[in-house]
Design a protein around this nucleic acid. Structure first.
Lengths: 356, 356
DNA sequence: TGATACAATGTTAGCGTTAACTGTTAGCGT
DNA sequence: ACGCTAACAGTTAACGCTAACATTGTATCA
């Protein structure tokens, strides 16, 4: 191994192989015919000099970065790893790399100094509220390819968006609980600006209304997808001694918190109270008792977002809305007998799981 | 908003402001004197044209990317978010962006096609085993600035490394348990190639030896830092009916698993068995009972790695080894009375928490 | 008063790569 | 033997930016 080697350039490789730089480029990018014998010499030279093409130079000359950016807010949820994996898996076979950036406070982001954008990526996946509407509009008006993940674009911005059938899943879950005989169902909401959470709450309300059960605002608490918040909120709720048959948490993390709070209050789940979640997160089958939940295809969401973005980059258009199906996963925390996925539940088919 | 605007270039900005491109560059980078009035005109032009400098071009011309790469293995631990945050926080004020890349299978990584490297970053932070020794040597011999996080470099590679005082922390914990009267202490190890875990196990053994307690290999199980693995491994261990006073898990995640397994086996923690962990992860104060553990400064590790890398880039050298101190956090799962951090425990001061 | 310094700008060239073009040469049908 | 095509390779310019140097003007000092 050469010790103090500076980076080798394409010219040096070309010289080593006795060809022109262009030929090396052709070998590298498979962009034009090169004789087999020449190819081999070039490859040998590349190997010998430990040559790695310079991204910046490539981007300059070809006007492509072969990089996709993923913008995400400050988060602390394993959820995100699955999502990222999905994106990466979908991107890799197409030769794209994934550049991640976490925007601690999206509002403060200077659009002119965006760490990810036209200057270093071919497109952007924007996760939830990691970018505010203003920045979104700017990029959109500059025709920069973007896909939103778990976020609806503002009305005047036609950016493709990928999400779950959140409302549909929540409806199914509430109908399942109702089918078990539960009537007083509390709901643990997410943060106010979280769209997934809002659609889930909408589904909760809609299913109640459909069953002619009056909506009781006192049964809705904000757990913000946080286990500890859920614990304190549910502890408080249980202290109030309202009659409650079940708690529907807007995600599995808060369901876990609810479970802990219920146990701490001396309640037996599901005998005294049913507790269910949403997401079917990694650990949800191991809670005590195993959690009944709605399975959300998280990794698939990442894949779908990547696919849509590539489509947008390559063809100039993509599906405006991709909604991934959710499905009931019935375990023990709901206290129902049904072994299988609750097929007996009639769910009115909707053209779109989120909107009416 | 101009609708179909192509990217503006520095020349267009210069033309708009009635100056040369160089002056714009100077304003942008604060690299040379520019009259106040001119500066304002340039800034106005930048704003009007929505100009964003092209990273690639900059990198080419200045031979700097202002980007640091963080390589990490496939990971499913909240741990990582704290680490990343630390890195990002330390980098931001110096104008560096953070480029992340997750190497699913580091062995298969083609050194010549490394997604992160000299071509697009000014330096690399390598987390645990996300890069194999061969690749590491190559980059090192090309004098590419790198810092290892939670990994010791191979002997012939002088790359700075940042880690915790793992062994020291483990010693303290075992001594604490011994001080409580526990004698038969089981250990839940991490994956064999995880250095943090290995040092923790070394500390466990050393403390036992120092107390003249024979090491019993049957009391060591591999939980791999995974909650579910810990549950099954501990369940099996408890079934064997060996006398066990305490379980020392190599991290809090597996401690959580141990806790669940113990409860499931009808044991009361800490009355029947003490269970302690390592890391002081986000949720550890909320377990039931609250987990006694060793606090590892995770975010600080990220910061330290970033600092060392910047130092290496700027001055050509950095501290070969940064060991961040760990400290006992005594809660209830160990069953000791001591309210505060166990000051009564005498710990022999060592020059280096990991090596002897 | 001219020499000196430095603030403020401009000019030129080049970073490493690829797009678009320009040759060559060989094969092939007629 | 003539042109025609296609395989293979090279040349030139340009991508957007900044380093290094060159050029002005103006204030300062002996």
């Amino acid at each position: 191994m050469d010790s103090n080697a500076k980076r080798a350039t394409i010219k040096e490789v070309a010289a080593e192989a006795g060809v022109s730089a262009m030929t090396v480029s052709r070998v590298l990018n498979e962009t034009g015919p090169v004789a087999e014998e020449t190819t081999e010499r070039v490859l040998a030279a590349i190997s010998a000099l430990n040559y790695i093409p310079h991204r910046g130079a490539r981007a300059l000359a070809s006007q492509k970065t072969n990089t996709i950016g993923l913008l995400f807010p400050e988060i602390n949820d394993l959820f995100f790893f699955q999502l990222m994996r999905g994106v990466q898996l979908a991107l890799m076979p197409h030769g794209y790399d994934l550049l991640l950036y976490s925007t601690a406070r999206p509002q403060g982001l200077d659009v002119l100094n965006l760490p990810l954008g036209q200057h270093n990526t071919d497109g952007l996946i924007v996760f939830t509220d990691s970018l505010d509407d203003t920045a979104l509009r700017r990029l959109y008006s500059a025709r920069f390819p973007m896909v939103l993940l778990h976020r609806t674009p503002p009305p005047d911005v036609a950016v493709p968006s990928v999400s779950f059938e959140n409302k549909d899943g929540a409806v199914k879950m509430v109908q399942h609980l109702l089918g078990c005989g539960h009537r007083r169902i509390a709901f643990l909401a997410g943060a106010p600006n979280n769209e997934d959470a809002n659609w889930r709450e909408a589904g909760y309300r809609e299913a109640l209304a459909a069953a002619d059960i009056p909506f009781d605002p006192l049964l809705v608490r904000e757990a913000r997808f946080e286990e500890e918040t859920a614990v304190s909120v549910v502890t408080a709720l249980l202290k109030e001694k309202r009659p409650i048959d079940a708690i529907f948490a807007a995600d599995d993390v808060s369901a876990r918190g609810a479970l802990r709070a219920a146990h701490a209050a001396g309640l037996c789940v599901p005998k005294d109270i049913a507790i269910v979640g949403f997401d079917d997160a990694l650990l949800s089958q191991y809670t005590d008792p195993p959690l009944t939940t709605v399975k959300a295809p998280i990794e698939e969401a990442g894949r779908a977002a990547a696919r849509q973005l590539l489509k947008l980059i390559n063809t100039g258009q993509a599906d405006p809305l991709t909604l991934l199906p959710t499905e009931l996963v019935i375990r023990q925390s709901c206290g129902c007998q049904s072994a299988q996925g609750g097929d007996f539940i009639r769910v009115k088919k909707q053209h779109n799981g989120n909107s009416d």
